[in-house]
Simulated assay, not measured.
Amino acid sequence: MNVQIQTVRFDADAKLIDHVNKRIQKLSTFYDRIVTVEVFLKLDQLAHQIKDKIAEIKVHIPRHDFFVKHESKSFEESIDLAFDSLVNQIKRKKEKNLH
């Protein structure tokens, strides 16, 4: 599984990168044929307001792509929400293919 993490408009610290990698590695327990995972971490620039932290995850498997996007006040929370939603999509896809 090839994992790419990209940050937009900021530099991520090692703790954040580590958190993302740990979550992404867990995806292989739900689906073992994942080819690549792209993670985009972005700061939403709103004038004079608290910036939202956006996490987008794109997962490529043979003949299908999954995409989730979540935003919250912290990157860790955004990643966790996106991860949970991704797991649901993968489980639904697997169930659909088995029936």
Results as ranks from 00 to 15, higher is better:
residue 5 I to Y: 02
residue 37 V to D: 01
residue 77 E to Q: 13
residue 2 N to L: 12
residue 20 V to M: 00
residue 32 D to L: 01
residue 58 K to Y: 11
residue 83 F to V: 06
residue 43 L to Y: 01
residue 13 D to G: 13
residue 55 A to H: 01
residue 13 D to W: 11
residue 65 D to K: 15
residue 39 V to R: 05
residue 93 K to A: 14
residue 83 F to L: 14
residue 2 N to P: 01
residue 93 K to S: 14
residue 12 A to N: 02
residue 29 T to F: 07
residue 79 I to W: 03
residue 99 H to C: 07
residue 59 V to F: 04
residue 76 E to A: 10
residue 96 K to T: 09
residue 12 A to S: 11
residue 89 Q to P: 09
residue 21 N to R: 07
residue 43 L to R: 06
residue 38 E to N: 09
residue 64 H to F: 13
residue 83 F to T: 07
residue 45 Q to Y: 09
residue 64 H to K: 15
residue 85 S to T: 08
residue 54 I to V: 13
residue 52 D to R: 11
residue 89 Q to E: 11
residue 73 K to A: 10
residue 82 A to R: 03
residue 59 V to P: 04
residue 36 T to H: 05
residue 11 D to F: 02
residue 17 I to N: 03
residue 31 Y to W: 05
residue 98 L to Y: 14
residue 84 D to S: 12
residue 37 V to Q: 01
residue 99 H to S: 15
residue 23 R to L: 10
residue 52 D to L: 08
residue 48 H to G: 13
residue 23 R to C: 07
residue 61 I to W: 01
residue 76 E to F: 01
residue 65 D to Y: 14
residue 79 I to C: 06
residue 31 Y to R: 12
residue 36 T to L: 01
residue 75 F to E: 02
residue 56 E to R: 06
residue 90 I to Y: 13
residue 60 H to N: 11
residue 68 V to F: 11
residue 11 D to R: 06
residue 11 D to V: 07
residue 11 D to G: 05
residue 85 S to M: 11
residue 16 L to K: 04
residue 78 S to A: 14
residue 54 I to H: 06
residue 47 A to V: 03
residue 93 K to V: 14
residue 28 S to H: 02
residue 37 V to Y: 00
residue 2 N to Q: 15
residue 9 R to Q: 12
residue 18 D to C: 09
residue 37 V to K: 01
residue 84 D to L: 06
residue 5 I to S: 03
residue 31 Y to F: 10
residue 94 K to T: 15
residue 68 V to W: 14
residue 41 L to K: 01
residue 80 D to N: 09
residue 59 V to N: 04
residue 63 R to W: 03
residue 79 I to V: 15
residue 96 K to R: 10
residue 66 F to E: 05
residue 68 V to S: 14
residue 85 S to E: 09
residue 36 T to I: 00
residue 84 D to P: 00
residue 86 L to I: 08
residue 65 D to G: 09
residue 71 E to M: 12
residue 89 Q to F: 09
residue 29 T to H: 08
residue 2 N to D: 10
residue 7 T to H: 12
residue 22 K to V: 11
residue 89 Q to L: 15
residue 82 A to V: 06
residue 23 R to F: 04
residue 28 S to V: 03
residue 78 S to D: 02
residue 1 M to G: 02
residue 87 V to Y: 03
residue 39 V to D: 06
residue 75 F to A: 04
residue 14 A to H: 12
residue 16 L to F: 03
residue 44 D to C: 09
residue 93 K to D: 14
residue 53 K to H: 05
residue 25 Q to C: 00
residue 51 K to D: 15
residue 21 N to S: 13
residue 6 Q to E: 13
residue 92 R to V: 08
residue 94 K to D: 15
residue 84 D to E: 06
residue 92 R to M: 13
residue 60 H to T: 05
residue 33 R to Q: 05
residue 52 D to G: 05
residue 51 K to R: 13
residue 75 F to C: 02
residue 51 K to P: 06
residue 37 V to N: 02
residue 4 Q to G: 12
residue 5 I to W: 03
residue 91 K to V: 13
residue 17 I to Q: 04
residue 38 E to F: 04
residue 19 H to V: 00
residue 6 Q to W: 00
residue 22 K to M: 04
residue 53 K to T: 02
residue 13 D to V: 07
residue 71 E to V: 03
residue 45 Q to T: 15
residue 67 F to P: 07
residue 2 N to S: 11
residue 98 L to R: 14
residue 73 K to Y: 07
residue 92 R to T: 10
residue 55 A to Q: 06
residue 94 K to H: 15
residue 10 F to Q: 12
residue 23 R to H: 12
residue 61 I to R: 01
residue 28 S to L: 02
residue 79 I to D: 04
residue 37 V to G: 03
